[in-house]
Computed example of a mutant assay.
Amino acid sequence: MDKLKFSTYAVFSNKDNGLIGNTSTVVETEHALSNVQMQSIASDLWQPATTFLWKKNDQWHVRWFAPDQEIGLCGHGSLAAVAHLYEKGILDTEIHFQNGIISGGVENEKCYITLASIPVIDELTIENYLLDGLKIPILGHFKTSNKNIILTDSQESVRFMSPNFEILRRSPIFGYAVTAVGDDCDFVSRTLVPHVHQLEDPATGSSHAALAPFWAAKLNKTKMKAIQLSKRGGQFHLTLEGKKVKLYGEHYKLNEGKLFLH
């Protein structure tokens, strides 16, 4: 029976301002585990994302699993992986994960990830199910290859939105990044995922890969600060570099230990 080391991090946080971020447990392994093993561990740990990290031929590999399924792109899990390597003192340059989607590193003792920006594909009709499901003013509905963007009128509308997930599940759309101009930052958002058990994600890197180019065009800025107004709260510093988005975030370790691999 093998023992695997793990550490849990909260990332995209700012505890001084009450933003405690999103959590991911990083499980570092000597080699790739099977899909069944990774899904079983993720189900037992019951984190928004369990990040599996291993090195092969001097290249780091990463995969992410929610308790119920694999995650195709997980920004906060990637930042947790970068934080894990940084905390171990083995991250002295930018790392490129083998999946080719995402990379990361450290600048001025701040961890970051870099991922491809996600552009708007089309502007969609604002359908009644959205108005009924979100119960906020909707100024625009935009399709992306990840989550759709919902533009609303104010930070207060985002903060006090009370979604009806049963209504939102009437559409097959996977998720929504609901956003508005911020009062004390460039923009705010919340990420809703009505078709999975979590329903709302606390601090979402992949949403900000879409929100960065969206707001950069509106605000005519390439460097921005964003707050995710979930119950836990998240803080992001974003830089748009061509077709790439660099997301900086604070982190802190919650626990560490060993688990048994059956």
Rank of each mutant, 00 (worst) to 15 (best):
Glu107His: 13
Asn164Ser: 00
Lys88Phe: 14
His197Ile: 11
Arg159Asp: 07
Ala83Pro: 13
Glu87Ile: 07
Val158His: 09
Lys56Arg: 13
Thr125Cys: 06
Asn148Leu: 08
Lys110Gln: 15
Glu70Ile: 11
Asp132Leu: 01
His195Glu: 01
Ile136Pro: 06
Leu79Glu: 08
Ala81Arg: 13
Asn57Gly: 06
Lys143Gln: 15
Phe165Met: 05
Glu70Phe: 03
Glu156Ile: 12
Gln59Ser: 05
Ile126Gln: 12
Phe65Ile: 10
His76Pro: 12
Ala83Met: 12
Cys74Val: 09
Cys111Asp: 13
Thr114Lys: 15
Lys110Gly: 10
Pro163Gln: 01
Ile150Thr: 03
Leu151Arg: 05
Ile118Lys: 12
Trp64Ser: 10
Pro119Val: 12
Gly89Asn: 11
Leu115Met: 15
Arg169Ser: 00
Ile102Tyr: 14
Asp92Trp: 07
Gly140Asp: 03
Thr114Val: 15
Asp92Ala: 10
Val158Ala: 02
Leu192Glu: 04
Phe187Pro: 04
Val158Thr: 08
Lys110Arg: 13
Asp132His: 02
Asp184Glu: 08
His195Ser: 00
Arg169Cys: 02
Phe65Trp: 06
Pro137Ala: 10
Cys74Gly: 09
Gln198Ser: 04
Ser189Asp: 02
His141Thr: 12
Lys56Gln: 14
Val120Gln: 01
Met161Arg: 00
Trp64His: 11
Gly89His: 10
Ile71Leu: 11
Gly104Leu: 10
Glu109Lys: 15
Glu156Asp: 13
Ala66Met: 14
Trp60Pro: 11
Lys135Leu: 01
Cys111Arg: 10
Pro163His: 00
Ile167Cys: 04
Ser117Pro: 09
Gln69Ser: 13
Ile113His: 10
Cys74Asn: 07
Val120Leu: 06
Glu127Lys: 15
Gln155Trp: 05
Ile102Thr: 10
His96Asp: 07
Arg159Met: 07
Trp60Tyr: 15
